[in-house]
Design a protein around this nucleic acid. Structure first.
Lengths: 238, 238
DNA sequence: GTCTATAACCTGATAGAC
DNA sequence: GTCTATCAGGTTATAGAC
């Protein structure tokens, strides 16, 4: 997963003069391809995407795309790599000594922001899940599983200290992920029901407040003050 | 949407003797194709699905599939038709005179059961949303939107009478749908995290109880007794 | 490194014998 | 109504000129 661009081509020749300029152009082309591919895979899925469409969006001839990425699958793996890094970046700490209201609130807000700012990544991830996680299964079974184990212990600790209700922690995470990601993945449904061409910033804020209220009160934690985040944590009295 | 099998072929000839037997065989073949197609579309999506695979699963030669459904798209539309009917069948009444705890509880339970019993339909629906609802947009903008409008008024009425907290009703429906459907759509993720080959009946019950607790307490309604359903409704005191 | 032209393959759909 | 054989179109990937 760490370097999916293993096509073995295009490495700088030993006797090159302008290697740096070429390296720049190389990275820029690759970046444009990945950005185009993200949009195409999110909209059409792996099978629906075509390398021709990716090339068109990237503003390159199709053969150029295959020069940088040997196969369509290699492009997809590179995009997934990015997606997982983004997914993980939305994972707030949730430390045992944190105040549950503050920490859970910050986590849910981070996930909501992630859906708002990176809907394409969210949709690609969702498509992977629907297909049975053929590519990201290893990630789910290692990194994500161990994250859930660790954080579940933290939540059980909070419940034992009476800071929140005893809620099955993995199930709570499934709920949080489902609710926050629906604003990216099911955008078409939400827009259709609300009779709007797209979700506005205000819709997003309403959604965030509703989600925070229902999820936090639903597991028995009092809400933190709306505006502040992880920087001004309050330690829980032990 | 009502009859997507509009290929115009295969209607019984006027002078036929065994028309009934042929009609039976016809319906049976169509049913087998649709069942196979549901599985293939759910697993692979529209573009990933092949008519050859659908035929193989249905136990028929490929040409036979094209005899009953002129195009791949016609098969897909027939499957979607089924899916939407199933989706609507999980919609409990939610009447203004019902007790919110009973009614919402029954609705969430129905949606959870639907995910458990019809995961393929749920995944096909999810893929449609991810693709921007090209086929079901009309359904979303008419039937579903009007359902949400009607039921939102019911929820606002409950909130005004102090039977639940004032929660933005459409947002609450989005949350309920997201949470309940995740158990079908993101099954791969849930199994991977829980380290199980599949979700057991017990996992499903834990999930249902957790979802009910968090969602109902999250919008300020007291939980109804677990076992009973819509038959023994309690009228809300007005 | 870049791009045009093309090869190799697969898929949806059909023709036509039975 | 059923099924084998095949066509037409589109896709991934590559060869080879520049």
């Amino acid at each position: 997963m760490s370097d999916p661009r293993d096509d073995g081509k295009g490495r700088p020749t030993a006797r090159s003069g302008g290697a740096e300029a070429r390296g720049r152009a190389r990275r820029q082309s690759q970046a444009r391809i990945l950005e185009a591919a993200e949009a195409v895979f999110a909209a059409s899925g792996y099978d629906g995407a075509t390398t021709a469409e990716i090339a068109r969006r990237a503003g390159l001839p199709k053969a150029n795309v295959h020069y940088y990425f040997a196969t369509k699958e290699a492009i997809y793996r590179a995009v997934i790599d990015r997606t997982l890094k983004l997914w993980l970046s939305a994972f707030e700490p949730l430390g045992a000594e944190d105040d549950p209201a503050e920490a859970l609130s910050a986590y849910v807000r981070a996930k909501m922001r992630h859906s708002r700012e990176h809907p394409l990544a969210s949709r690609i991830f969702a498509r992977e899940m629907l297909a049975g996680a053929p590519v990201v299964r290893d990630f789910l079974e290692t990194e994500l599983r161990s994250w859930v184990r660790t954080k579940s212990a933290v939540l059980r600790g909070w419940a034992e200290r009476g800071l929140m209700d005893p809620v099955d922690p993995p199930q709570l995470f499934f709920m949080i992920w489902a609710v926050t990601q629906t604003y990216a993945d099911f955008d078409a449904q939400i827009c259709a029901v609300l009779d709007k061409p797209r979700q506005t910033q205000r819709d997003f804020e309403t959604a965030t407040e509703t989600v925070l209220k229902v999820l936090l009160e639903g597991c028995g934690v009092r809400r933190a003050a709306p505006a502040q985040a992880a920087s001004t944590r309050v330690r829980a009295a032990s």
